[in-house]
Design a protein around this nucleic acid. Structure first.
Length: 573
RNA sequence: GCCGAUGUAGCUUAGUGGCAAAGCAGUGGUUUCGUAAACCACCGACGGCAGUUCGAUUCUGCCCAUCGGCUCCA
């Protein structure tokens, strides 16, 4: 059974059903995608989700008719006749014949009353399609041929598998994904929220802020160890800065501006141009290079309103940025250092990084020879680090090529987090230099890089990856002490005091509730350790430990601390 | 920004052209309990602005926000 053929054929059947139910529909394209298919349609009326059931029903009727799929090779003229009322198909046909090696015949697939311009492949008959293993999932808008200059069509998505079992497994996975949605976890765990008064900007609650602070702490340590010097630059700067850097030309629509005393200011959408001011605040020697300025910078990007989504896509983000000023001959070795740093970071969280090399885009700046040199340095660094990477051509930044690092969350969704970008343009534009061994002025190169990408997105991905169960060192509340009865409060306080001395985030759950209730709350709040104390524990001078749904039994407090020290080096002696 | 949908209490949901219902959470009390929800009471909401109407949370329009996509992502 060829699932792709089934999915592709279902797209045709979907179009067939639409043709029956909504005469006058103009058809776009209907390809196979991961897990299913879609068809783009210009419908005489707009659809509501309930219509999908009606369409599905019609599809099943058609499938039961054992419709045969037949490939025909026909002439351009007969194709024109067949699609005379189908402007999108005619456009595709025209394009098909405009190529250098236009064939004499065009291939169409006929299935019952429906004919589509299509090169295949398809099943022979609809009896090959299991009736209970597909489902129309959603209706959405999509621009014709993916360009916002074109009209918007209605896209119907469907999923299809080879059996009912696989379909329901997929639906279960989706339900699981929904439970892990970081927006829901953020609410449930009281980490952050979004408010109508500030769309696209997170409000960090005290517990969420602990995660941010712990990540920052760890990040600073790692960067100090690697020779980075932390800086901070203004959030609001005159827009002329970005005119000079070239960003205004490329991203003016996405830059927030404000007028002050007749001058236009911008909220910085990136840190780089300002970083160069610190660089050129004094004469730099070749001995200073590579010079690494790090900055945890608050950035503002006016993304299209429809693209804003939770912590993944925001108007206001916090980038763990750094700019490395170096000589051309240091690019490879420094890139290798960075690749190692990225690997170290991602190993810490259990993410598997995937590397993509993005090369010169259409609207690039600078000379092609420089670009080629830059691309070569990056690919060599990747190769020497023995990293497998994917080439994303024409996807670089306007100022230079980059290595983007993606990671998948536990549900196999891919997210771009880290990035390493080479820049030969900014040093030119800001006339940066250093003095070389011979006392001559030379131009440095800049590497822009972020490891988390943004704290917002990183925390969002991390929460989904771990379904909210953060590692001990990041957990906002690490330990709850649960006294069984009132008479155990005193002992709970004693334990609390002892553990508090070791830098632990700990609290006594002293509410007037049953133990069961407190355990339940602790589990829901993903507290790493719940310590139950009662008569038994007092008698043995210990605590009863529960962690991740498991009762680990009675333990002496000292032993418990030893266990904790094994998983978290921050614990004070 | 574009297409489509949604918006009722802190959260999850019910409901109506005529006093808006519940569970959880919160507050006060009772209970002091051994590993995922004790009991009683109380507090608390129709996204905003217009319009239609005797009367709008409900109908209409506009706006805002959110969700699913498209496009974009320095």
């Amino acid at each position: 059974m060829d699932l792709n053929k089934i999915r592709h054929s279902l797209a045709h059947i979907l179009a067939h059903a639409i043709q029956d139910l909504y005469p006058g529909t103009k058809f776009g394209i209907g390809p196979v995608i991961e897990n299913g298919f879609y068809y783009d349609l210009d419908l005489p009326k707009s659809l509501i989700p309930e219509d999908l059931l009606k369409i599905e029903k019609r599809m099943r009727e058609l499938i039961k008719q054992n419709i045969i799929f037949k490939k025909n090779l026909i002439s351009k003229d007969s194709a024109k006749k067949i699609f005379k009322n189908q402007p999108y198909k005619l456009e595709l046909l025209k394009e098909f014949y405009s190529g250098h090696r236009a064939p004499d015949k065009v291939s169409v697939y006929v299935s019952g009353e429906f004919t589509d311009f299509c090169k295949g492949n398809h099943i022979n008959s609809t009896k090959e399609i299991p009736l209970d293993a597909f489902k129309l999932t959603k209706v959405a808008g999509a621009y014709w041929r993916g360009s916002e200059k074109n009209p918007m069509l209605t896209r119907i998505y469907g999923i299809a598998f080879s059996s009912k079992k696989e379909l329901s497994e997929y639906l279960n996975l989706e339900a699981e994904a929904e439970k892990r949605d970081h927006r829901k976890l953020g609410e449930k765990l009281d980490l952050f929220s979004f408010q109508e008064i500030a769309p696209g900007a997170a409000f960090w609650h005290p517990k969420g802020m602990i995660i941010v602070k712990e990540l920052e702490k760890w990040w600073r340590k790692k960067h100090e160890d690697s020779g980075y010097l932390e800086t901070s630059t203004p959030i609001m700067v005159k827009k002329s800065l970005f005119e000079k850097s070239g960003h205004w030309e490329h991203y003016r629509k996405n830059i927030f501006t404000l007028e002050i005393e007749g001058e236009t200011y911008a909220l910085k959408p990136m840190n780089c141009p300002e970083s160069t001011y610190i660089y050129s605040s004094r004469i730099r020697s070749y001995k200073d290079l590579p010079l690494k300025f790090s900055e945890i910078g608050r950035l503002f990007r006016n993304e299209l309103s429809g693209t804003i989504s939770g912590l993944f896509r925001v108007h206001q983000l916090t980038m763990d940025d750094a700019h490395i000023y170096l000589r051309e001959n240091q690019i490879q070795s420094e890139t290798k250092n960075l690749l190692k740093l990225v690997k170290d970071f991602y190993r810490m969280f259990g993410f598997k990084p995937e590397f993509k090399l993005a090369t010169r885009p259409e609207d690039f700046m600078g000379s092609i020879s420089l670009w080629k040199k830059a691309e070569k340095s990056l690919s060599l660094a990747l190769k020497q680090s023995k990293i497998k990477y994917e080439l994303k051509s024409k996807d670089g930044a306007f100022y230079g090529p980059k290595i983007d690092i993606y990671t998948k969350d536990s549900l196999k969704r891919s997210w771009q987090l880290a990035t390493i970008q080479l820049d030969f343009q900014l040093p030119e534009r800001f006339n940066l230099h250093y003095i070389d061994e011979k006392g001559k002025k030379r131009r440095p190169v800049i590497i822009h890089r972020a490891i988390f990408g943004s704290f917002e997105r990183f925390i969002g991905v991390l929460l989904e990856h771990l379904a909210g169960s953060l590692p001990f060192w990041l957990a906002p509340e690490q330990i709850w002490i649960i006294p069984i009865a009132k008479r155990h409060q005193q002992y709970a306080k004693k334990i609390h005091l002892e553990l508090k001395n070791h830098n632990l985030r700990i609290k006594i759950k002293s509410d007037q509730e049953t133990v069961s209730k407190k355990i339940r709350e602790g589990e829901i709040q993903k507290i790493p350790y719940l310590l139950v104390v009662g008569d038994e524990e007092i008698k043995n001078n210990g605590v009863r430990i529960r962690s991740k749904n498991k009762d680990l039994g009675l333990m002496n407090l000292g032993n418990f601390l030893e266990e904790l020290k094994k998983i978290d080096k921050n614990i004070k002696e």
